[in-house]
Design a protein around this nucleic acid. Sequence first.
DNA 1: CTGATTTTGATAATCATTATCAATTAAATT
DNA 2: AATTTAATTGATAATGATTATCAAAATCAG
Lengths: 143, 143
Amino acid sequence: MVWKRISQKLEENEYRLTPQREVILQVMIDNRGKHLSADEVYIEARGKSSNIGIATVYRTLEKLASIEVLYKTIFEGGKYRYELSLGETHQHHHIICLQCGNISEVEEDLLHNLEIHLEKKGYKILDHELKFYGYCPQCNSKK
Amino acid sequence: MVWKRISQKLEENEYRLTPQREVILQVMIDNRGKHLSADEVYIEARGKSSNIGIATVYRTLEKLASIEVLYKTIFEGGKYRYELSLGETHQHHHIICLQCGNISEVEEDLLHNLEIHLEKKGYKILDHELKFYGYCPQCNSKK
DNA sequence: CTGATTTTGATAATCATTATCAATTAAATT
DNA sequence: AATTTAATTGATAATGATTATCAAAATCAG
Ligand SMILES: [Mn+2]
Ligand SMILES: [Mn+2]
Ligand SMILES: [Zn+2]
Ligand SMILES: [Zn+2]
């Protein structure tokens, strides 16, 4: 199901599914819901294929993000993070807990009123990126 | 008006308003509405005070962001950008044009329904960061 | 003034990412 | 199947932004 969608995307864009790319994709699939940095992917990928190079990891993540198989973003810390992107038309939102650092996801879009407001002003909105900062339910109740 | 608010913030946090900090703040005030990188601030600051150091610029921007006199964010390009933050409780939104690169601001908040939705789930939301990607009115009409 | 504290500027160090390039692998052509 | 062509890889150098270090300068408190 996931693989099917991915290989289709690769085909559309004429990218081969090499063993290295397969390993990297498997890492991303195994970590669905998490947001991994290039070096974290590298560590895990080496576990599966001990001689994969870090340059290949960077290249592959970049490439997969460009065809929207991965979503690339940055959470404070100065490095990019990647996560598997299922066929969502609009990116899901993130809530970052300022206490424990946990990142949770918000599947509900709910930006419609804002986007309509902007389209009335002449903009054409294709996607969005929304991060909330605050406290997660656990940390919030402990205060 | 702006300076008054700034010097109050500095006082509250026991940061001195040194000549270098004053120059950097003046650059940020002169560029209200723009989003400057550290090196852009450095270039402009040198125009006003030719021997200011780049390290001082980095340090000062960081410090001013930590007391919320500046707002720090990152727009694709791998470097942080800063803008003067007036006393907004919640950060304004940004619309990035994928055609011309122009960044415009959305003052209307309109995230209330989403935040209420999250607070019902136990979260406490303190702030947010929202970027829209699409086409600005000019680029949109030219298509 | 005097000694303590903060701030500064030059520069070295760090860290993530990108570029380079020869070697390997896979695809296309003969 | 052998040969040519193109894509991909891995090692490593280069880059670029940011941070750390540290001695000198500025400012503050007594
Ligand atoms: Mn996510
Ligand atoms: Mn802005
Ligand atoms: Zn938490
Ligand atoms: Zn535009």
